[in-house]
Simulated scan of single mutants.
Amino acid sequence: MSRFTHAAATMHTLSLASMEEASRFGVRDADIDHLLLALTIDPDTGGQILRGMGAGLDTARAAVATQHAAQLELVGIASDTDSPRRIVFHETSGYEWTDRALAVWKEATSGERSGDSAAVLRALLDEPSGLIDEILRRLDIDPTTLAARLDEVQRLRLSPPATPETTALSGTRSFFVPASLEDVWALLSSAARIPEWDPAVGMIDADDDEIGPWEAESTIATPDGKPLRVKGEFRRQCVERAECEKPSLVRWRFSYPDAVRSNPRVVDFELEHAAGGMQIRVTLTWDTTRRRRGLRVVRVLLKPLHRLLVFTQLAQIGSGITRVFR
């Protein structure tokens, strides 16, 4: 993965998580405090450093809420910091970055900064309003110490791992969730719970006491109720648990029995422990072994589009998983 691609993936992941956090506060402007919350569940260096210093998602949310309440009290407005709210970003629209958040993104990709999560966190520390410093101090984190650790990462010039070129229609991304191994495994190994993380599956007739395969219905409407155009032959899916090695690996295979020439979709989950939760490596592969002859040139031309589609699908799956535990 190139520096540009890695930075783009980081921006997409953090933007999605930031706007999800903003939706919990009932606002449509994603600000620097929401970006800090997103970094606490980042799977890469920035998130690892924050969690290693004690800034998990729940504690950071509490610190942000307390900071908001303190700011409101300065102008004589009382605030309830204990009222829990759920993420509604995927059910709503109209979200944008604030100007100071956009300035942080610009700073994170300027000069020698690579735009990865460590660079974003370092740019947050340099943001002049002082809001991030106040939140960090509520977390008992010294901003100067945090900055020193991030600068050390920059001096080491750590590069993202290289991704080998492949002709397969496949992609891999890692996600962090603030949950136990048991809870994550219970979600990802259950056929009945697939609709919680897979936006392509609307309903499934599944009993986890069975070994499958199971029949599922494709999603025909967005979370806010807008209908989706789904051809008749793609409305029914066959779901198989192709591999299961408790508690570290599970592989799901999705096919369309009414569309005999369609390509099956395979989703792999690999689980490993991480500070404050679990790291999940998700691999999405479209089985293109049933290729028709004479289309090689077309496939080459469409490869960038296919990569974008796989990237988007992986992001949607990752967002669905993390949302369950947030």
Rank of each mutant, 00 (worst) to 15 (best):
D268M: 03
T109Q: 12
F4G: 13
R113G: 02
L136D: 05
L305T: 00
H90C: 04
A221W: 04
M11P: 00
P195L: 03
E245G: 05
S262I: 01
I141D: 10
I32C: 06
T13H: 10
R173C: 03
L156Y: 02
R3P: 03
S110V: 10
H90L: 08
I41K: 03
G171D: 06
L50F: 07
R293C: 02
I77Q: 13
T144S: 13
R296D: 15
S319C: 08
E217V: 15
A242S: 15
M11F: 07
S170A: 10
L14G: 02
S255V: 05
R291N: 13
T92F: 01
L121P: 03
D198G: 10
L102A: 12
D287I: 05
C238A: 09
E196K: 09
W97H: 00
V282D: 02
I135C: 08
A62I: 01
A70Y: 04
V300M: 06
P264K: 05
W97A: 05
V27E: 07
T145N: 12
L158I: 12
V267K: 05
E210T: 15
S83Q: 07
D31V: 02
F89V: 04
S2R: 11
L124D: 12
L37Y: 04
L150E: 03
M1E: 06
P264W: 04
R299Y: 01
V266W: 00
P213L: 14
L74K: 13
G130M: 09
R323M: 08
A162I: 15
V300E: 00
R85F: 12
